[in-house]
Each structure stands twice: as C-alpha cells, then as structure tokens.
Design a protein around this nucleic acid. Sequence first.
DNA 1: CATAAAAACAGAATTGACTCAATTTTAGAA
DNA 2: TTCTAAAATTGAGTCAATTCTGTTTTTATG
Lengths: 204, 204
Amino acid sequence: MSGLRARQKADRHRRIIEAAAALFREAGYEGAKIEAIAAQAEVSIGTIYNYYENKGDILGAIVSLEVNEVLNAGRGVVARPPANVGDALDTLIGIYIEHSLHYLSKEMWRQAMAISTQLPDSPFGQAYTGLDRSLTEQIRALIARLQEIGLVRQDIDGAALGELIFNNMNMMFIEFVKRDEARIPELRAAIRRQNRILVAAIGV
Amino acid sequence: MSGLRARQKADRHRRIIEAAAALFREAGYEGAKIEAIAAQAEVSIGTIYNYYENKGDILGAIVSLEVNEVLNAGRGVVARPPANVGDALDTLIGIYIEHSLHYLSKEMWRQAMAISTQLPDSPFGQAYTGLDRSLTEQIRALIARLQEIGLVRQDIDGAALGELIFNNMNMMFIEFVKRDEARIPELRAAIRRQNRILVAAIGV
DNA sequence: CATAAAAACAGAATTGACTCAATTTTAGAA
DNA sequence: TTCTAAAATTGAGTCAATTCTGTTTTTATG
C-alpha cells in the first residue's frame, strides 16, 4: 500500500509550498524567513530541508507551477495560430507575458532568475533551464506550424529562428522584471518592434 | 588639499579589489570569505563594508573593469568593420566572447549575473545594466556604420536590430556560463547560425 | 599648534540559512 | 499483536555575511 506515508508527504509538500507562496508574496523572498515558513507550514526547519535542498528550490517549485501553466496556455495558440506571422508571434508572446505576473511578483521572478544562473546544477536550476527549453520549443513549434500553413518560408532555419525569438523575448522580460516601474504594454510593444524585422524576413 | 585621505582611500580600494580578485580566482566567489579578503587587503571587515555595500559589489567592480576592456576592444571593429555583414557581426561578437573569460571565471560570471538581476538597484546592479546598454549601443553603432558603407539596407530599424542581436547573444552567453563544459567555438557557431537569419534579411 | 567636527576604521554582536545527531514514526515481517 | 529496520522529523548548533557602536585618524579652523 502506498498509504499513509505517501499521503503525509504530499500533504507536507503542499503545506510548505502554500506557506512559502503566502510569505513570499507578503514579505518578499528575502523577507520570508525559513523559520516563518516552517512555523506556518507546521513543520520543523529540518523537514523543509528534507523536502527542498535550499530556500531557492522552494521558490523554484512555485515558479515551475506558473511556467507550466503558461506552456499549457501556449498550446492553444500553436494549434490554431492567427493567420498572420506577426500576430501569431505576438499572441503567443502575449500569453507568456500576461500570465507571468499572475502568481509571481517581479521580485520573485528576479530571485528565481538569479538562483537559476547562480546554481545551474541545483534541482531548480536544472528545472528552470528545462522550462526555458520548453518555451523555446513551443515557439519553434509555432514557426513549424506557420511553415505548414504556408505563412513562413520553407527555407527558414526554424530552430535558429525559435531560439532567436525566445532569447530576445526572455532578455526583454529579464530587463522588465528588473525595473519595478516597467509596464507590460511597453514591453510588448518593444518586442513587437524587434520581431518586425524578423517577420519581414521570414514571411512568404 | 585633498591629499592624504583621498590617496589612502584609492589605495585601500585597490588593495581590496586585488585581494578579492585573487581570492575569487583561487577559491571561487562563495569560497572567498569576506574575512579572508579583509585580512589579505590589510583592512578590517567594517572597512570593506564602508567601501562596498556588499560582497556582490566587490565582484561587480571587477566585472566592470573587464567589460570596459571589452567595450574598448570593440571600438576598433566599429571603426573599421570587415566588408561583409556576417563577418562584421561575428568579429564584434567574437571579441566580446573571447575577452570575457580573460579575468573572470564562469563561476564569477554566474555570480555577477545573478547579483545584477537579484539587486538591480544596488550600485553594481545599476552599473551592470549600464554596461549591457553600452554593449547594445556598440552593436547599434556597428549597424549604423554598415548602413553608411552601404552593406545594410537603409530602411532597417537599427535600434531594434541592435537590441535583437545583443539580447540573443547575451542570452546565449548566459546559457554558456551556466554550463562549465560548454565551449567557446560552439557558442560562436550557434550565434552565427542565429544571426544568419538576420544577415540574410538586412543585407542590401 | 590646539581642537572640534567629520570621516573612516575596527571588530564584536547579530542574523538567518543550512547541517547533523538524536529522536520519533511508519511499514511490514514474524 | 509485537518488534525492528528504514524513513522522516526535530531543533539546537554552525557558519559567514552584514550591522552596529565605540574609537581613531584626518581635516579645517581659530
């Protein structure tokens, strides 16, 4: 039987994540002390470290939830893209960006990104790299779809193009979360402007 | 007279940076304890914090030196670029990448990048953003130069293109420093492949 | 040259993430 | 049901960055 132990384990995981998410939002990442998370989750400090390697991994678990939602939302666009290269890209990127601040504050994003470059081999570091790869892959899939439909030239290097678009968007997003006063509409407009060069180059 | 105090100050700055650079290289960023840096620089812990807000700012000062060298090296390429768009970009980017690991290890880069996103308002965070901006600006300048020479179409949005190229390169560099086993030739080849799409689109 | 204000210094104390040895709980065999 | 090994939990202790407060040095003024 998988019974009791597994159930308790899942329950503790959930309690830790919920406590951490609440405290991260209230007090910020640095402000949320492990001791407080432990108290709110009704486990000991040691138990937290039994479940997560370090504080960053707790945030990592939360970020992964959010990015997976974003990936899911993106699937719809890839399946039925707008009938225009520029709009198709803008729609997909729009979904990424608009969803991104649903559960995570800019401060949480900053921390998550920082941790993923600081400790690329930690569980979260690896997960984050995987998430980036999935997003790149989805953009690539969209381009492939547009090539099928005949909106993008067949001789375009889809892999390289997908990376280019993702990398640019991601870097823009990083700069966006670094400035608290930056706003989503301006971010999207800037990315559209950059992508316009590509759109002009790859359309049939 | 500004004399003694200013001289001592400059001297202490230099000693701290030299001690830190040596220890970062020997022991890595985390491994270099502030206490050890203080001892080697022959100042007290308190003095270090009088000169730098936190450990990250010390690394930041070292990174800034390196990036400024890179910017200097880049000026030559902008002034006299290779007579071919692809080569011109590749040469400039090559300078950036090849210089980048001169004084700084990948681990130091990871830390520096992490700190700059984690604390974008700290002195180093702001400096780093400024350095990124300068690099973007230099790429933009190269494109403007290529437009003058007539190698790049006049109707290309040089600002957007410069950002696109820099953001992609920067993101590729981030991924590069995250993997210790990644090698420079492969990095450069991947970026060339991505830029090929752009080169095809902007050439006269 | 004496001296008061300002600047810089020193290092002990604080803080908070993380470790680890001891204890408790669970699974399942007898 | 009872017992034992494995798994999980606990929280006091460690370690290193950062802060804080009293002391020393420098500067500028009379």
